[in-house]
Amino acid sequence: MTTRVDAWLAAAIDDAERRGLPELKPLLEALARSTAALRAADEATSSAPGDTHER
């Protein structure tokens, strides 16, 4: 089961705020965009026949 990027981002921002690091929010949002691009590139180049997992 792959963790969805939007769910991961929401949890990461909550955790950063809980830890007193609200300044991380824009960086985590940028990281989330990069993670989505990474996953898209991986999917586009991956040879996993029959792979129906959510990405």
């Binding site: 963790t3 990281l31 993670t35 990474l38 996953r39």
Partner: peptide, 24 residues
């Protein structure tokens, strides 16, 4: 500091994806 803190949130599965793309 904030870049190092950001790294704590990268998921293992995405690290693995990145290593696979690195080989490519």
């Amino acid at each position: 500091r904030v870049r190092l803190e950001m790294g704590r949130y990268v998921l293992a599965e995405d690290y693995v994806r990145a290593m696979r793309l690195r080989t490519m």
